[in-house]
Simulated scan of single mutants.
Amino acid sequence: MNKKSIIAIAILAIILVVGIYYTVQDKNDTNDGNDTPKEDAVIDENNDKETLPEEKVEEDPAEEPQEEEEQVTLERGKPAPDFTLTTLAGEEVSLSDYEGKIVMMNFWATWCTYCDQEMPDLQRLYEENKDKDFVVLAVNVGEDEKTARDYIDEGGYTFPVLLDEDSKVAQQRYYVSAYPTSYYIDKDGTLIGAVPGMMTYPQMTQILEQIRNGEI
């Protein structure tokens, strides 16, 4: 492990059609400045399954089982499932519209404490990279347009916000059950992996640089 690494990251969780996560974790005991570190996930070396800190994700209290319209397989190295949603600006966009950019697709909700804590770092990451090869897509799950808009306006966030009001994209295409959860998608639309749970700005930037450098 590279001893120069100063932050812990959790990356490349492959969520299969049955919803099982497999995650590769790089970690280091040191931390950078005032950023609050994400607690290390615990990996059982015998079965390579990960147990995440419970406080890092929140289950949707309003979430109810929904009938699955179609089976979608999520697999690293395969195309990320496409979808079309409406933005807060009233524009219909598809994931495929962002080919040519590295996409960080962040599933969130206004009631989620850890989403709220993560938002300023998402904004900073977006502002520093929006004119480059990267975009943040913040997918609001299960809430109406006014609820999402009021929250975004109050926070002064400017990254694209997509409305998944019926939760179908989150639940039926990306099998999201806890928030926040972030997916990374390469410039050609290929799924790189996912990070379930809150991240800090240093963790986000390290993952982005590793993707750019072809390290993951």
Rank of each mutant, 00 (worst) to 15 (best):
141 V>T: 11
130 K>Y: 09
16 L>I: 13
176 V>C: 05
199 M>S: 13
191 L>A: 07
156 G>N: 09
151 Y>E: 07
113 T>Y: 06
83 F>E: 06
148 A>F: 06
183 Y>C: 05
33 G>N: 09
85 L>E: 03
68 E>N: 11
52 L>F: 12
127 E>F: 07
120 P>N: 14
161 V>S: 01
27 K>Q: 11
209 E>C: 07
82 D>P: 02
171 Q>C: 13
205 T>M: 13
202 P>N: 03
25 Q>T: 15
105 M>T: 01
80 A>R: 04
3 K>C: 14
76 R>K: 11
30 T>M: 15
70 E>H: 03
77 G>A: 01
23 T>G: 08
129 N>C: 06
3 K>T: 15
170 A>C: 04
37 P>F: 08
101 K>D: 10
163 L>C: 03
162 L>V: 02
168 K>T: 14
130 K>D: 10
119 M>K: 00
71 Q>T: 12
112 C>E: 04
187 K>H: 10
184 Y>K: 12
78 K>P: 02
147 T>D: 13
216 I>A: 10
210 Q>N: 12
144 D>N: 11
153 D>S: 09
60 D>S: 06
19 G>C: 04
208 L>E: 02
132 K>W: 12
88 L>A: 05
83 F>M: 07
167 S>F: 03
54 E>S: 10
172 Q>L: 11
188 D>S: 09
11 I>G: 04
122 L>E: 13
150 D>S: 09
133 D>R: 10
32 D>W: 11
154 E>M: 06
103 V>N: 08
96 S>I: 01
108 W>V: 04
11 I>W: 10
172 Q>E: 13
198 M>G: 08
89 A>G: 06
123 Q>W: 01
101 K>C: 09
142 G>R: 12
207 I>W: 01
69 E>I: 10
